[in-house]
Each structure stands twice: as structure tokens, then as C-alpha cells.
Design a protein around this nucleic acid. Sequence first.
DNA 1: CTCGTATTCCAACGTTCTTTAGATTATCGG
DNA 2: CCGATAATCTAAAGAACGTTGGAATACGAG
Lengths: 214, 214
Amino acid sequence: MFPEEPVYEQLARVGKALASPVRLRLLDVLDQGERTVEELAREAGVPLKNTSAQLQQLRAAQLVTARKEGTRVHYRLADERVSRFLGAFQGFAQERLADLRDAMTELLGSYEGVSADELATRLSDPATLVLDVRSPDAFAAGHVPGAVSVPLRELEDRLGELPGGREIIAYCGGPYCVVSPRAVELLREHGFRARPLEGGLTAWRRSGRGIRGL
Amino acid sequence: MFPEEPVYEQLARVGKALASPVRLRLLDVLDQGERTVEELAREAGVPLKNTSAQLQQLRAAQLVTARKEGTRVHYRLADERVSRFLGAFQGFAQERLADLRDAMTELLGSYEGVSADELATRLSDPATLVLDVRSPDAFAAGHVPGAVSVPLRELEDRLGELPGGREIIAYCGGPYCVVSPRAVELLREHGFRARPLEGGLTAWRRSGRGIRGL
DNA sequence: CTCGTATTCCAACGTTCTTTAGATTATCGG
DNA sequence: CCGATAATCTAAAGAACGTTGGAATACGAG
């Protein structure tokens, strides 16, 4: 009577993949670059067993692919279109749910961010310092060329290393990462001029610009 | 420790809305135009109670809005962006899941369809007949200007009414609607030249062209 | 005011999904 | 070959979701 059912069932497979906060977060981490299961679990704050289980589902929905190397398995988004769709999905959800926008401003504050385009033009400007405030591991896995790695944890102690006068552009992982706004807050309290990169490293990657591994 | 959680929870709300075959089908019907709960239930082949329950969820995710008129409630997609996103979602799922493409060709056959653009140019061509093979109710709710309503059920009996020589473009609801391919099959068996409209009335609507109510 | 219709609310059941513990596999280094 | 590590598989408990029956609401017609 309703032969379309299998088609909608297939469509729902993709929807289901996007239906869990844990999976969405894993996708956001992977959108910064390839990661092993262990790295993913740590960066996303999800128990390892669970991380592995959710990755199986993402793989079944063909959103990620795995590559085995020795004893560890590296996951990555299946291709660039997944990244773009993820961006569209997040944008769509944001324009739709006021609660989501509220949660974001509460989380991220309301610093006017720098766009990926603006960052690109500033890269060669000696009056700008680009600061990667993620973990050293994340930095090693891929970062904006020319960025300096200072994990947020160490930032307060290492303020002396930073040159005065230059404007600092701080970034972290994805569009919902809280780290760079925290860094900007700290920097401004100590008299630096600082702004966060809008959308984090993910936005940089999506804008088609290269990242540099270590 | 991981303050981003509420944000991902909100994102997942939208994902969850897309995680059920029933809801996806309801959205596809609504993408053709406004419908009451009862019409939706009938067109989608879902029990009325369940239809209502699922609509509550779609409303909570702000994908649809309701408008009360007398004793019945008319639902529609919240705005044009929902329709566009739905198209992107379906396209993304199709390019991703081979199983989905298989289910589609099994369901729809492999007639080369007419694009909405092509249909637009053909509308004024007297050598073309545009055939709406959906139910009279659906036709009344909105159709391609100039289209003739012949529900698939009646098509075989009314073949005599159709002019020979003209090419027939048959359409039904959304991209996964089986009705127009069936109609094309029937028409070709009886010697007519016929092709389906790619993506159905939904594609026509999305392409920004008007539809005519009754 | 009462009745009938369209829809929603509430509660309950069954199913599916998430999470985690325990066992298992695969690979590397010795 | 043995032991250690990374990841997965299996199974089971718990939470969330889909579905449906019965009651409730809201409205229009008479």
C-alpha cells in the first residue's frame, strides 16, 4: 500500500546519525582532522567504549571512514561533502532554535569574531599573532599555518611570552568550542587586544585553506 | 568539565526530528503545501493519532507551524528554508547511501525525468500536456498552473480523454512518490509519449515557481 | 445547550537506542 | 611465542522513543 517506506527508512538512517549529542560532538572533532579512537574519546570527553560504539554507527551511515595503521584506527569524515553538510546542518539548527542561540551566547560570550577570510589576509601581517589554544595533540594533528601553540591551561603562566601591541587571534576546535573565548577573555583582562576565530579551525578548514600538520 | 553539552543537545533536537521515517514522510507531504492533520495522515498512510504525535515533535523542533481554522489545524513547513534544507538533506543522503539509491531505482524505475526548469519552458507549449496524477484533494491544495488532474486510479479508464501526439509530463508529490512513474509506465504501454517530472511538485515549488490552489 | 467532529493530551506498553562491563581480536615489540 | 596495547564484539541493564487506546478539549452546527 505504501511502497515508499524503504526509501524513508534509508533517509532516516542519516537522520539517526545526527540524532545524538555524542555523535554530533565526535563529528565536530573529526571535522578538525583525522583522529584515533582514543584521541576522539579524550577530546570529546566520551568514554572509550562508547566512542567506539558510536563510531560504528557513523560508519554505517557512511559519514566517516576508518583507516587502520598498526594497532590503532584513524577515523576521518568520509569526504569534504560531509563537512559541508555538517556546516549546513548546524547553520540550519541555529537559525531555527532560539534555545540553541541562547546556549551559544551563554557558552561563548559575544565577542565579535574574526572570519576565516579575514584571518587569511592577516596571516602575513606581522602585527597579528595567531594563537592555537587547543591541546598540543590537537595542534600536532593540524593547525593554521604560522599559529603558535599555547594551550589555554598554560596561557596565564605564559602571558609574558606574548608580544605586546600585536592583535591576537585565538582559535580552538569547532564552532562550539569554549576554549578560545575563554582565552580571549583572559587576554583582554591582561591588556591584550584579542579576538576569537569564528567557527574555529573547522571554519578555516571548510573555507578551503590548508592546515599544517606537525 | 564539558560545558558544550547543552549546545550539542540542542543540535540533536533537530537531528532527532529527521530520525524517523514517519516524520520524514510527513515533511515531504507538507513540502507540497499546507495540510490538515487528517489529510496528512491519509496521504502519508500513518494512523491519525500517531500523525498528531509526530507533528508535535516537528513543531517542537520548529520545522513546522500550525494554524487553527475552525475545528481543524493546518500544518505547514515553518518557512522556505526548511524546504531548502530538506532538499539538501535528501541530496546528501542520496549521494551517501548506495542502498538508498538502489531503493529509489527499484521504486521509481529509471525514466529520464523532466526538470522543473524544463517544465517551466514547456508550460506555454501547446504540444505538452501536464498531468497531475495525485488525488483530487492534493490537486485542490495546490498544483502546477495549467495541469490537468487525473488521479492514477482513474487514468486507465480515462486514457481516451488524452490527446494523442502531445508529450505528456506527469507528476505527483515529492521526489520519492511512486505515482508518476507508474503513470508514465501505463501511458507508454498505451502508446503515449510520457515522462515524469523530476522531484514532483516539491521540486516545482522549491524552484520558486508558483502553484495554483483551486 | 447539546451533539458531533478534529485534534490533542495522558498513560501504558513494547521496541529501539545508549551505555558499559567482560571477553575477544589484531598488531607490535621483545 | 608471549605480553601489552588499541579497538571491537557481545550481552545486558537502563533510558528514550514510537505507538495506540481512552479521556479531554475546542469549535461549529443545530
